[in-house]
Design a protein around this nucleic acid. Structure first.
Lengths: 230, 230
DNA sequence: CGCCACCTCCGGTAAACTACGTAGGGGCAA
DNA sequence: TTGCCCCTACGTAGTTTACCGGAGGTGGCG
């Protein structure tokens, strides 16, 4: 059962053009335009948000929680393309369908906007069109970096890169609170969960990081980690 | 020494909106808009077109030849992100800089358009803005598929996928004429050139393909190849 | 003609990772 | 509390692939 609540474009007066306001710059795009109706929706842990090749009816923004987008091979092998954290927009497609599936990693609240209404808005407001392009371009940049990681980096380099990415994106008071399990990390980095676990243990033994619980990480030596990133 | 020639927006009368005319649909975007000045430029084999993190002054379209875009690690490991063939647009950035380097694979003629003039055109014509987004979105889709390949497919599956991609993109009269060497293929697929070579030999032995010269490939059993793709 | 780049084929070695197992501790939810 | 999932930590075996060197063939080119 899903909790649903309307919040029809609550903060209307917001400016759009390049606001480096809060933590996340993509925040204004789905809220800042009058005439756009946004709906909030809550998904439970491991619940599917949309499937691969499904019609792309909505564009999503994470309010609370975390989302993984992924592709599957016929025998179940999985590649996670990205993790989406509060503030991130995902599910935005230029074509008709979603090309990755999306699931909530934990209980997650999303803001939904009709894809059609966004496209319509983009036809009359070039700034919206520019924002849509920028979001897709940002995803492409991430994917390009990730191809380098998947194609050419060693297991330890991948884990170091992952830690620095998470540190940049979700570090609060020096602490990384991971929303995802080791299997998710492995499927993101093209490794097995065991390899991820081993790499983290070794980094802890070297004093590069501290673990307080499996999903609470403190980076103690970012320079060393940047070296390991290759 | 570079051959240069002006062809200032030669085919002006061309329509833009969704032309499924020739082999390649991206063809109209850099030529179809009056007011855009296009310059043709020829690069020699292995010549750099632009470097990683270089200012993105131009957007490019392949007229003849082929281009590889890639990222390097500090120790020389290379990941090729994409091959660009006649008709393809590349080097299009939403941000200020190129995030992969680009080189000509063989003697290659490109059409260049000033990035600024395209952006300007996009501000007055929403169709142009839409086209720019579509190009970037297409690149993202390719990158997403490639992440699955790099993260989760076996060597043979990668080679099979590569062959089917090339078959789709450059097959003339049932023949694939590869512009790139085995090392390029390896760096594209996250493999060594030896592994690529072995996989192709095995496919030849199985009768799945025929080699007439290393870069002339005939696919004899696409169904088998599609199975191998996983 | 030789030179050179590219490619294939042949080894052997080593690393990386997978694929099983088993076991135990901890957190969390019913 | 109990059960379940997640995580760590062993172990062993096996596969895949990388990496190294070298030999030989081929085709293009000067």
């Amino acid at each position: 059962m899903l909790t649903q609540s309307n919040s029809a474009s609550s903060s209307v007066g917001r400016k759009v053009a390049s606001l480096p306001c809060a933590a996340n710059d993509q925040f204004g795009i789905l809220t800042g335009h009058a005439g756009l109706v946004a709906t909030e929706f809550t998904y439970r842990k491991d619940e599917e948000i949309y499937g691969e090749d499904e019609q792309a009816e909505y564009v999503y923004q994470v309010i609370r929680g975390a989302v993984r987008t992924y592709k599957l091979l016929s025998d179940g092998r999985r590649q996670i393309g990205a993790f989406h954290l509060p503030g991130d927009v995902f599910g935005l497609e230029s074509g008709a369908t979603h090309r990755l599936a999306a699931e909530a990693i934990l209980d997650t609240t999303l803001r939904l906007v009709k894809r059609k209404s966004l496209e319509l808005s983009a036809q009359s407001d070039v700034r919206v069109a520019r924002d849509l392009w920028s979001i897709t371009s940002g995803e492409l940049q991430h994917a390009e970096n990730h191809m380098l990681l998947l194609g050419r980096k060693t297991a330890m380099e991948r884990v170091a890169t992952f830690l620095l990415e998470m540190d940049r994106r979700i570090a609060k008071t020096g602490m990384i609170a991971l929303p995802m399990c080791r299997r998710d990390i492995g499927d993101y980095l093209g490794l097995t969960l065991e390899t991820v676990s081993r790499a983290l243990s070794e980094l802890q033994q070297q004093g590069v990081l501290g673990l307080s619980g499996a999903r609470q990480i403190v980076l103690r030596n970012r320079e060393r980690l940047a070296d390991l990133e290759a």
